[in-house]
């Protein structure tokens, strides 16, 4: 495993992704998601919205890192808010 050169931040990152997937699975088993149409142009399920949210979060981070000198925490906060908005009204 040493060749994978783990660091604490990346370990936290992957653990939270795994936790999200596990959480979504349990949620889905408890109450199956119904496809619905929110403000996004396509109708989505819960999982779709999570995926869209995570992907836009990645691009928000890249934009902050590459083209501004703002702190990455601002990007993180912004992504979290966006993810919540998307999950609720997307």
């Amino acid at each position: 495993m040493s060749w994978m050169v783990w660091t604490l931040p990346t370990a936290i990152f992957f653990s939270s992704i795994a936790a999200m997937l596990a959480g979504m699975t349990i949620w889905e088993l408890r109450s199956p998601s119904i496809e619905r149409k929110g403000f996004l142009p396509i109708s989505t399920t819960r999982g779709d919205r999570l995926f869209i949210g995570l992907m836009s979060a990645a691009f928000i981070h890249l934009g902050f890192i590459g083209f501004t000198s703002l702190s990455i925490w601002i990007a993180l906060a912004l992504s979290a808010v966006w993810l919540l908005v998307l999950m609720r009204w997307g």
Partner: peptide, 20 residues
């Protein structure tokens, strides 16, 4: 893919020498 993510936040000089 995980390994690539790990590499991307470090300067990997060798098996046991890398800097965040």
């Amino acid at each position: 893919l995980m390994t690539v993510v790990n590499y991307s936040v470090q300067d990997v000089l060798g098996p046991n020498a890398s800097f965040f």
